[in-house]
Amino acid sequence: MNVRHLIPTAAVAGAVVLGLTALSACSTSDAADRRPGDKLNVVASFYPMQFLAEEIGGTHVSVSTLTKPGVEPHDLELSPRQIGGLGDADYILYLKGIQPAVDDAIKLSESTHSVDAAKLTTLEDHGTETGGDEHGHEHEGEGAGADPHIWLDPVKYAEVAKGVGASLEKTDPGHAADYRKNTDALVKKLDTLNTAYKTGLRNTATKTFITTHSAFGYLAERYGLVQEGIAGIDPEAEPSPARIQEIHTIAEKSKATTVFFETLASDKTAKTVATDTGLRTDVLDPLEGITDKSKGDNYFEVMQSNLAALQKALGAK
């Protein structure tokens, strides 16, 4: 996980106080006090949470996101207005562990309507932030701990969707039947996506793929693949000559063909490693945001694009 430019807790605390003070004159909206026809005011931390809220909430919710398109989520800096707006939200959906600024702001705001998606499934410690290599080795710059990139595994994302649906039913019981129906439809689509990945990646010439941003640990584990991260937590960090040589060796032994980079970060590292190792480059999108550079307009379209890229890189048969 990229942890560049994190905001000190003290700074976030100060911004929370300013934000909440600035908006203290506004009445806090509450789901129980909303008038008939009013939409549930939902705040999502970043795109994977926004997508769930919109798909499950449907016409009954108005969703805003703290992370605008094109902004690297890990680098997010919250304005006092954004932080203060948390107090006006009927429902906040976030994923603890991926955006420290958001985690701190929600904790200090003491919101009673926040849902942490990390608690709706089981997070795993892959040995490194993203699972390391097939031997469990940690690579330079990587930190141990639970991997937050659960949305890249359709099965885990479906578990989160079910939890979000149940919590929306509780928050807005008047529309519980619709939330349940939308949840079921989304889970069915995620089950279909899981089947597509399982089938499409079953027979491949190699199981190893190389990434600059090691975000695909859950996906690799789900489908029997091996993820090799170049520089660990920072997709734009310069790999050492030793690491480049190690990647070269791994690529030769595993018959890996491609170095993947992402849409919201520079491709400099990927191109450097690819040039030095004789590999190709391609995009594997961690789906932390949708922009005009994304290979798809929503979660499912980008995940299908990722599947096609993996099949090509891994030599799917």
Rank of each mutant, 00 (worst) to 15 (best):
Y157G: 00
S114P: 04
K188H: 13
G200Q: 07
R180I: 03
A118Y: 00
H139T: 04
A161I: 00
D191M: 12
D178Y: 01
V160Y: 05
E129I: 08
T204S: 13
T112G: 04
K170D: 02
R202E: 15
N203W: 07
T195V: 11
G200Y: 06
T130Y: 15
L123P: 03
A158P: 05
K170G: 01
T171H: 02
E124V: 10
G145W: 14
D133V: 02
A146F: 13
K181Y: 05
H126C: 02
A185G: 01
K189S: 09
P154K: 13
L201W: 07
V155F: 08
T128Q: 15
V160W: 10
A196Y: 13
A161P: 06
A185D: 01
A118D: 00
A166Q: 05
H139L: 13
N194F: 01
L108T: 02
G200E: 10
E129W: 12
A196M: 15
D116T: 01
I150M: 07
P148K: 01
H126N: 08
S111H: 11
T195Q: 15
A161L: 12
D184P: 12
L193E: 10
A177V: 05
T130N: 15
N194D: 10
E169G: 05
K162I: 00
P173F: 06
K107R: 07
A196W: 08
A177P: 00
H126D: 03
S114V: 02
A158T: 01
A196P: 12
T192D: 12
E138F: 09
D133F: 08
D191W: 10
Y157A: 00
K162L: 04
K188W: 03
G165C: 11
K107L: 08
G174N: 11
G174A: 12
D133C: 01
K162N: 04
T199G: 07
T122R: 04
I150W: 13
H139W: 14
T122L: 05
K181D: 05
E140Y: 13
T130Q: 14
N182F: 11
R180P: 01
P173R: 03
K156A: 05
G174H: 06
G163F: 07
N182L: 06
V164E: 00
A177N: 02
Y197L: 03
G143W: 15
D178N: 12
V160I: 09
V115M: 03
H139R: 14
H113T: 08
V187N: 01
Y157C: 01
A146L: 15
A146T: 10
T199Q: 12
V155E: 06
V164P: 07
T112D: 11
G131P: 07
S109N: 04
P154E: 07
G136T: 04
G141Y: 09
G127P: 09
R202F: 12
K181N: 03
K198S: 11
L168S: 00
E124N: 08
T204R: 14
S114G: 02
A205N: 15
T128K: 14
R180K: 04
D116S: 10
E124M: 13
T128W: 13
D147E: 13
G143A: 15
H139Q: 14
G163C: 08
E159T: 08
V115G: 00
G136I: 06
T128L: 12
D153A: 03
G165V: 05
A176T: 00
